[in-house]
C-alpha cells in the first residue's frame, strides 16, 4: 500500500476534516434542540448548541490537523534518514 500518492493523501485529509466539522456542529445543534425541548428555553438552547458544536468541530479539526502534520514530519524525517 503506497502512501506516497499525493492525490489519495489529499482526499484522505479532505474526507477526514470535512466530516469532523460537520458532525460536531450537527451534534451540538441536536443537543441544543434537546435542551430546548426539555427546559423550554427556545431558542437559546439551539443557538448556544450550534455555536458550541462549531467550536467542538473546530477543536476536532485542529487536533486532526496536528496529528496529520506530525505524521507528515515523521515521514519526512524517515525520508531524510534513509
Amino acid at each position: 500500500m503506497s502512501k506516497n500518492n499525493g492525490f489519495r493523501q489529499g482526499m484522505q485529509v479532505a474526507f477526514r476534516l470535512g466530516t469532523e466539522l460537520t458532525v460536531a456542529t450537527f451534534i451540538g445543534a441536536i443537543l441544543g434542540y434537546g435542551v430546548d425541548r426539555f427546559f423550554g428555553v427556545r431558542p437559546w438552547g439551539l443557538a448556544v448548541g450550534v455555536i458550541l458544536g462549531g467550536a467542538a468541530g473546530s477543536l476536532n479539526v485542529y487536533r486532526a490537523a496536528m496529528l496529520l502534520t506530525e505524521e507528515e514530519q515523521n515521514t519526512e524525517n524517515d525520508d531524510n534518514n534513509s
Binding site: V23, L59, N60
Partner: peptide, 17 residues
C-alpha cells in the same frame, strides 16, 4: 460542554465517514 460534544461527535463521524 465543547469537549463533551467533541467526544460524542467521534463515533458518529467515524460511522458516517
Amino acid at each position: 460542554p465543547i469537549e463533551i460534544i467533541s467526544m460524542l461527535a467521534r463515533p458518529i463521524s467515524l460511522a458516517v465517514r
